[in-house]
Design a protein around this nucleic acid. Structure first.
Ligand code: SF4
Ligand code: SF4
Lengths: 134, 134
DNA sequence: TTATTATAGACACATGAAGTCTTTGATTGG
DNA sequence: CCAATCAAAGACTTCATGTGTCTATAATAA
C-alpha cells in the first residue's frame, strides 16, 4: 500500500514541465538526469502520460515531450491516474453490485483523497515555488 | 497501490465481533470459516490487532479472541493502521525534513482519506445492518 | 543517409503479499 | 499430572508487481 516510485517520477517531471514552460520539446535524457533515473525507464512512464493525453511526444532529432494543451487544468489526480490506473484501492470478493457497508466506507474514504488530488492543480504548486528537482 | 486482503479480513473480523458482541472468546477457526480463509493465516493478522491493543487473546481450551475495552471507539483507521502500518503512502528521496510542495500535497490528500476513516466508527456501520459475512 | 529520439517488448531482479506448515507455549478440564 | 485445546512465532514457498535494463524498431530532422 504505497504510491509507486513511477508516480513520483511522473509528478516531478510534470511539475518541471509546467513550471518552466519551454517552447521546444524536452528530451527524456535531460529529464531523467534531473531525477537520477534511467532514461529508458522514465520513457516508459512518460509514454503513459502521452496515452493519457497529458503530454505529447515527437520522435526524431530535436524531439521529445511537450505539454498538450490546457496547462492550467492538469491536476495531481490526472497524473496519478495515468500512472497508477483508475482502479479502486479497495477490492474484494467478486463483482457483486450490492457492495456492503464496509465497502462503502472505504470508497468514501478514497473519494476524500481523490477530491483533494483533483482540486489541487499542478500549476498552483508550480507558482508557489518549486523546491524539487533544481 | 491497493489495500491488502489482510486488511479486508481484519475489517470483516472486527465488524463481526463488534456486531454480535459475544461474552465468550471467539476461536480463530470459526472466524476463518466465515471468510473462507486459512485459520493460521488469519491468526497472523489477528495477532497484529492484539499488538495494536484492539483485541485480546486467550490461549488454552475455550480460548480465542475478544474485544478489548471501549467498543464504541474503534474506527476503521485503527484497524487499517494495525494491519498496514502507519507509514505514509508517499515516500521519496531520503529523510529530508524540508519536504517539497509536491510532498505536501500528497500528504494532505492522504490526510483527507484518513480523516474519514478515523471519523467513521465500526459500531456505526454495525448498527446500520451488516450485510457482510453472515 | 545518418544521427537523433520515442516506442515497444522481452527480459531480469527485488520486493512484498499471500498462504502453508511446524514448533512452541499457555491454558483448561479431567 | 496428563491430555486436549488454542494462540504465537518463525521458517518456508509461491505468486504478483514494481523497478529497471537491453535491444530492436519506427519516426523525424539535418
Ligand atoms: S467489503 Fe463488502 S463487498 Fe467487499 S468483500 Fe466484504 S462483504 Fe463483500
Ligand atoms: S516530493 Fe519533494 S521531498 Fe519527495 S522526492 Fe520529490 S522533491 Fe523530494
Amino acid at each position: 500500500m504505497k504510491y509507486s516510485k513511477a508516480t513520483n517520477y511522473a509528478l516531478h517531471t510534470m511539475m518541471y514541465m509546467i513550471a518552466i514552460e519551454p517552447n521546444s520539446p524536452l528530451g527524456v535524457q535531460q529529464l531523467a538526469d534531473k531525477q537520477g533515473v534511467s532514461p529508458t525507464y522514465l520513457s516508459k512512464i512518460l509514454t503513459k502520460l502521452v496515452k493519457a493525453g497529458l503530454i505529447e511526444s515527437a520522435s526524431g532529432a530535436h524531439g521529445g515531450y511537450r505539454l498538450k494543451g490546457k496547462r492550467e487544468d492538469i491536476s495531481f489526480l490526472d497524473i496519478i491516474h495515468a500512472v497508477e490506473g483508475t482502479a479502486s484501492l479497495f477490492e474484494c470478493c467478486g463483482s457483486e453490485d450490492s457492495k456492503c457497508l464496509i465497502h462503502g466506507v472505504m470508497l468514501e474514504a478514497e473519494e476524500g483523497m481523490e477530491q483533494h488530488l483533483k482540486n489541487t492543480k499542478m500549476i498552483d504548486v508550480a507558482r508557489k515555488r518549486f523546491s524539487g528537482i533544481s
